[in-house]
């Protein structure tokens, strides 16, 4: 489907260690324009992978190509950074700054030298995330969700070719998530977007493709609907709990939803969701983690 020339990111056998612990273990990843979700539990290595993509971290082993350039070379790295929008997991702000000053500062870092052009661009991205009216408010006086939106706004500066977003939906309410979806699908017409999350709802709502990462390894990489389809025939609704299921939980109607390889007693098949498929996928590899999630 996608040709080599439209590939904007190509990671081959990428490993990253912190001392003795391995955060990424021989990861192969290629990205094309469009929105890709990076899904995985806490500690899976998502932030590490995104830091490699954001060129702020170097791999221990393996080969990285980003936008056809080598992030290991100083000149190429600068060139990549010119086309990059990056939202770190923890995007702090200089003390005492307003929303406007913060985005203006990042715009200055991104080489917007002309003052009035820079200010117009800052306004534009603040409006994209619905924060134009709070532009003059100090960052520390904004709510968590509002701060997250301002941090997102800086990633949109200059409509970058590559957008790397670490947990962009943290602190956003459903309405704000919906409006983020609009912005991302607009940008993704020409840009490559990778967003990390530990929530399946984000991936279901925002992404066409999903990469599932667990313990530093890629467990699934493909279209979201194909991952969902893997759970067909494995999701059941029943009146009783089932001890044999990989995971079971009570749903709003008072019945139990089971993800299981075999039909529990008196159960009927249900339409699978991404969450079911994700539980099934992780159930095969990490039973204890799944048990934790169904508690």
């Amino acid at each position: 489907m996608s040709t080599i020339s439209s590939t904007s990111v190509m990671f081959t056998g990428v490993t990253r260690r912190y001392g003795n612990s391995t955060a990424l273990d021989h990861v192969d990843l290629s990205l094309q324009p469009g929105v890709t979700g990076l899904l995985g539990p806490n500690g899976a290595g998502k932030t590490t992978l995104l830091r490699l993509l954001g060129t702020v971290l170097a791999p221990t082993e393996g080969r990285c190509r980003i936008l056809g350039l080598d992030p290991g070379s100083h000149e190429d790295r600068t060139e990549i950074r010119r086309s990059l929008g990056y939202l770190p997991q923890e995007a702090g702000y200089p003390r005492g700054f307003t929303a406007f000053q913060f985005v203006d500062y990042v715009a200055a870092l991104k080489e917007w030298t002309d003052r009035s052009q820079r200010h117009a661009e800052v306004r534009r991205v603040l409006a994209l995330v619905g924060m134009e009216e709070l532009a003059g408010t100090k960052m520390r006086r904004l709510s968590g969700g509002q701060r997250r939106r301002v941090a997102l706004a800086q990633a949109f500066l200059g409509s970058p070719e590559l957008l790397v977003l670490d947990e962009p939906t943290n602190g956003l309410d459903p309405e704000q998530r919906a409006s983020l979806r609009g912005v991302l699908s607009d940008l993704a017409r020409r840009a490559t977007v990778l967003l990390a999350t530990h929530q399946t709802e984000d991936v279901a709502a925002l992404c066409e493709r999903v990469v599932v990462l667990d313990s530093g390894r890629v467990r699934y990489d493909g279209p979201v609907r194909e991952l969902v389809a893997q759970a067909a025939g494995r999701v059941w609704l029943a009146d009783e709990e089932s001890p044999s299921a990989l995971s079971s939980w009570r749903v709003g109607t008072g019945r139990y939803r089971h993800v299981a390889h075999e039909a529990p007693l008196g159960a009927e098949l249900a339409e699978p969701t991404l969450e079911d498929a994700y539980l099934l996928l992780r159930g095969g590899q990490a039973d204890d983690a799944v048990a934790g999630m169904t508690a």
Partner: peptide
């Protein structure tokens, strides 16, 4: 010291200049 240092590093501006 700088809570937004990761952003500064990811920008095309030279950190040395900053």
């Amino acid at each position: 010291a700088d809570p937004s240092w990761e952003l500064a590093v990811a920008s095309p501006s030279s950190p040395v200049r900053l």
